[in-house]
Design a protein around this nucleic acid. Sequence first.
DNA 1: CTGTTAGCGCATTCAA
DNA 2: TTGAATGCGCTAACAG
Lengths: 316, 316
Amino acid sequence: MQNRLTIKDIARLSGVGKSTVSRVLNNEGSVSPQTRERVEAVIRSHGFTPSKSARAMRGQSDKVVAIIVSRLDSPSENQALRTMLPLLYQHGFDPIVMESQFETRLVQEHLHVLQQRNVDGVILFGFTGLSAAMLAPWQEKMVVMARDYPGISSVCYDDDGAVKLLMQRLRQLGHAHISYLGVQETDATTGMRRYQAYLDTCRELKIPPVAALGELSYQSGFQLAASVVEPHTSALVCASDTIALGAMKYLQQQQPLAPIQVCAIGNTPLLNFLFPETFSVELGYGAAGQQAAQQLLGQLSGELGVRQIIIPSRLA
Amino acid sequence: MQNRLTIKDIARLSGVGKSTVSRVLNNEGSVSPQTRERVEAVIRSHGFTPSKSARAMRGQSDKVVAIIVSRLDSPSENQALRTMLPLLYQHGFDPIVMESQFETRLVQEHLHVLQQRNVDGVILFGFTGLSAAMLAPWQEKMVVMARDYPGISSVCYDDDGAVKLLMQRLRQLGHAHISYLGVQETDATTGMRRYQAYLDTCRELKIPPVAALGELSYQSGFQLAASVVEPHTSALVCASDTIALGAMKYLQQQQPLAPIQVCAIGNTPLLNFLFPETFSVELGYGAAGQQAAQQLLGQLSGELGVRQIIIPSRLA
DNA sequence: CTGTTAGCGCATTCAA
DNA sequence: TTGAATGCGCTAACAG
């Protein structure tokens, strides 16, 4: 901490020049095996690590990436985040986490600060309302999750596929009247896309659509459940497990119990625990986090180009 | 990003020397009001921000603090984390988040890396099994959450108070047979302390103790509930809301429904939503996060000494 | 293959 | 109150 060694010390201790030490540190080719070995020994024995800030200053890069989540306590973003962190560390980047709280203004503020800070890259968890314009300056140094913008890399979930997976499974189980509990179309993915996928699949499978759109909360699921349960409704697709939780509460307190098969997108273990008779599809948050981190790392090292990635959904 | 201005540029642009700009940046006294004003104007108009890494290198401090949570998806730690982050940013520190996954080995590895990295401070979410020895080197630069160690600052929850609050409330409501569903005593706080507080309060209130200890999961709550519900049991205290969720599931599926008042420590909104008839005490995660961040900042700036802080519990 | 030299952007002497 | 000079730890360009 206080008496940290520098490459100068290592150089002296191993009887070589500073630059040779630097070369060893950066795995550059032009060092004879013997000297390399000798220097590495000294480095190891003293537990030397080069000063990050000095390297950063020299290299025009702070080796810092920011991750802007909407809310830290969102289980999905949380899970994606957990997989990114280790990957970023492994590559020598310090990941710093910020919250946008679904507010465009906060994203803007954060991006502004980050630009000043000269961070190398940003992983942004997108939400409805972000404008392409404010992201444009980041082009090659940004990966957006759950939304796509022209010219910027993204990692998206397969909302359509998820809904279809659920519907097909229900169909297999013999259900012919499948209702839908979703989110308002002002939300582009969880709202619009999933709803559209529901409508499309209904058409395909010749199922009369019965749906209600509200918010992404148990309360909303609870309140709207009544409006989509019709006499012959036998199954219910929920846009999220949160909504499903609310719907289940409603169904459970109905007397007599309506024998309705509920399923949802998302994989909160809790839903499965409280109501084992439900099932769900997993959007692949972990995989998404990994993809996002790898994509950003690739772009920052100049190996990868801008790309739109879609994570396949699968039955949990 | 690429053509970043430096204090040199600002100096030239405002017709002063580099060191004057530096003084203005650091709010040092010896600068005439006029020059200060002039320099500040230039800085603002160009949106200049000093390079963090250069400052870090010069100042022997990277301005980085690490936060080692056990699991990012723990709602309690999550909430504490959310309040710390902004505070740390405000003071110019980059917070980097790591997970220990309740593994001593991982904590050790992280601390090792962090020491090499020369981070300024660490906030560590403690758990049973950490040895005082491995934390000792950090002394003044660490704050531990939920556990205390001699010579190291800590922010702890009031486990005793929480249990007492619940028991007293139950007593007020007229309950005389109050059971307890907890966690094994191998866990020092959630396990042992809360259980002890239960026993102590039972003695105080002349209540015959009936308890079972398991794990911190809904499954455990569900399985153990049966063993603490006796014929005249009228209330149940749960060591966590997770356990309570499991217990409620058990109680709910009992026929006839046992009219048992359940309460818990923790404030998952979900418990309250699904089972409004329960109540709980809030350990103050947000407040804890704030205290921890402030304490660490204080210590790092040399203003505060090592201190043990306890966050008061309160009925939610 | 290796050592020497020259900065990166800033804070901190030391003179003026 | 100010500016010029020095060096933090490192990498890159240049010599040898």
